[in-house]
Computed example of a mutant assay.
Amino acid sequence: MGHGGNVINELTTDHREVEEIFGRIEALPPGDKNRKVYADQATMELVRHSVAEEAYVYPAVREHVAGGDAIADKELEDHAKAEQIMKDLESCEADHMEFDRLIGLLMTEIRSHIADEEENLFPRLRAACPPEALDKLGDKVRQAKKMAPTRPHPSAPDKPPANKMLAPGAGLVDRLRDALSGRGKMDD
Rank of each mutant, 00 (worst) to 15 (best):
L76S: 08
A133W: 00
L89F: 05
M1H: 11
R16H: 15
K87W: 09
A128F: 03
G67N: 12
R124T: 03
E117F: 10
L176W: 10
L137D: 10
K74L: 14
G2F: 01
D139E: 15
K87L: 03
K81R: 14
Q143T: 15
R48H: 00
V47L: 00
E117H: 05
D69S: 14
L106P: 02
P130G: 13
Y56I: 06
A162L: 13
A80P: 05
V37K: 08
L76Y: 02
D95I: 09
H79K: 12
L137S: 06
A156R: 03
D88A: 07
D40Y: 05
H96W: 08
R142L: 08
A60T: 10
P30H: 06
P123F: 09
G68C: 00
E90C: 04
A42W: 05
D100H: 06
V61Y: 05
P130L: 09
R175A: 02
I103R: 07
M165R: 12
L172H: 06
D73E: 15
E19W: 02
P59L: 08
L166T: 05
E63D: 14
M97N: 12
Q41R: 15
C129D: 03
P161V: 12
R126A: 13
A80G: 13
K145Y: 00
L89P: 11
V61L: 02
V7G: 07
R142M: 15
G184N: 07
D88V: 01
N163C: 13
G171D: 07
E83P: 01
G171H: 06
R175H: 08
A60S: 13
D32V: 04
R35W: 06
P131E: 12
P30A: 10
G68D: 07
D95Y: 11
T12P: 06
V141P: 06
G4N: 08
K74N: 03
H96V: 04
Q41C: 07
L134P: 03
L166G: 01
E109Q: 14
F99P: 08
T13P: 00
D188V: 07
P157G: 10
I21Y: 07
R101A: 15
V61P: 02
F122E: 04
D73I: 07
R62M: 12
D116H: 15
L166N: 00
T13W: 02
M147N: 13
M86F: 11
